[in-house]
Design a binder for these strands. Sequence first.
DNA 1: TCAATGACGTATC
DNA 2: CGATACGCCATTG
Length: 111
Amino acid sequence: MNKSYQKILSVVSLIPPSCVASYGQIADLAGLPRGARMVSKALKANRDDSIPWHRVVNSQGRISIPASEPSFRLQMSLLREEGVELKGSKVNLTKHHWQPSLDTLLFELSF
DNA sequence: TCAATGACGTATC
DNA sequence: CGATACGCCATTG
């Protein structure tokens, strides 16, 4: 577990319920431009359930976990439980895309 | 070393 | 909307 992973997870933990963020967006907020693939690795490696990993989807709003894996269904369930509108495996981004407040951004910078 | 591999992103057709 | 092609980059064998 290196520093980048910690940073990534800390950013993910800021995503509020019924909102989603993209891998690229998380990478940017974590100060890791073009680090989208690292975000996916960090989430896959993470075992802490208190981190809302399910609120991270790809830039198209689609769940990126292979449908063959069990966590794919789990992610859908968790999102629906929060009231996130899902059309198939795609979320309504115009409604649920996370837009961090200025406060949140400043808080991140101080981390 | 080096090629292959992703829970990615963007551009093009 | 679906399919393909690249770029990207840490990790893996």
